[in-house]
Design a protein around this nucleic acid. Structure first.
Lengths: 178, 178
DNA sequence: CTTACTGTACCGTCTGGACGGTATTATCAA
DNA sequence: TTGATAATACCGTCCAGACGGTACAGTAAG
């Protein structure tokens, strides 16, 4: 009963992300998502009654997944590792993935710019938290912004850094973070 | 003969940027741009025969303006200042502006993701150039990425850094860049 | 009888852009 | 000088197609 529902839901969400990545943020139509997910349009609208709800689910899933991964990285990380270092390491892993996992964001803000607000507030909280946990403000600023830059380049599909350069960057950031 | 009326072109370009920033990337319609620019739709399509041409002009203007500003910053900058430092300083100034000067980018990639390619190749060239001019690769990587992060936050309208924190970040980056 | 869909048919709105005007200015012949 | 012609820079309307969303009848599983 629940398995089938959850399955469709996730298939649709994944399909939406795929369509956005492959055919561009402006081509994320309900028809395209439905056919990609192997679901009828009626079925899509049964799971997500409006396009906005679909986008919202994308945002919420993304945020909660990141949150969970961060919590895991903090506890399972190398002992003695600072929270900032854990954040760097986690974000670096995410940026390493070839698929820009979050390019649907462009579709979301094209649909309605307000979809950025939960993301922004999530980020703000995260930064404030790191600020409280990191003694060296300058190190935090440099590392946090550099990671943000990495995230941005991944999002835009930029590949101006070689894998080696990325590794050097991360190790440097980890040194700065102590 | 040409210049007098041709200020329509600039008015339209400015209007497009304004509309994109204020009403969101998904609401950048030709009608909206035309009325904002104080021009009829016919007049708009006279200056830019398709929406894609309008976007292209936005991209090209942006890139050439940045290029020019960079050249100027390099020659007019403090003597003995490294090219990387000049880049940092210039980008910091741009990021300081309250208006995210480039939020039309979202509209452009919604229209057609290929609009990113000229931007990406511009960035790649810039990075390669800085790489040739900067002895310390680690410093370049950290500074370049941090600046990219700043640009990204400005683009998304994120304001999690206070003005003071931004200043501290920039001065730290300039120190790293030597 | 409910849940979770499928499938089709349909509707209203929005949008890009084609098109046929129009007013102003430039070119040039008589 | 003048008058015709043509190019420029724009206006305003109209239309075809795409898209979000609705409605509804059917169905297979539990």
């Amino acid at each position: 009963m629940k398995a089938r529902r959850a399955n469709s839901r996730e298939k649709i969400l994944a399909a939406a992300a795929d369509v956005a990545r492959e055919t561009g943020p402006g081509s994320l139509s309900l028809d395209a998502v439905a056919s990609r997910a192997g679901v009828s349009k009626g079925g899509l609208l049964y799971n997500f009654p409006t396009k906005a709800k679909l986008m919202q689910a994308l945002v919420e899933d993304y945020l909660s997944a990141f949150q969970q991964a961060l919590e895991a990285a903090r506890t399972n990380g190398v002992s003695g590792e600072s929270p900032l270092a854990a954040y760097i390491r986690l974000s670096a892993e995410h940026a390493e993935e070839s698929k820009p996992s979050a390019s649907w964001i462009f579709s979301a803000i094209a649909e309605d710019p307000d979809f950025l607000t939960p993301i922004k507030s999530f980020r703000r909280q995260l930064f404030q938290r790191l600020k409280g946990e990191t003694p060296n403000l300058r190190a935090l600023l440099v590392c946090y912004l550099a990671i943000e830059g990495l995230r941005s380049m991944n999002l835009f599909g930029s590949d101006i850094l070689s894998a080696e350069e990325r590794r050097l960057l991360i190790s440097t950031l980890l040194e700065i973070a102590e």
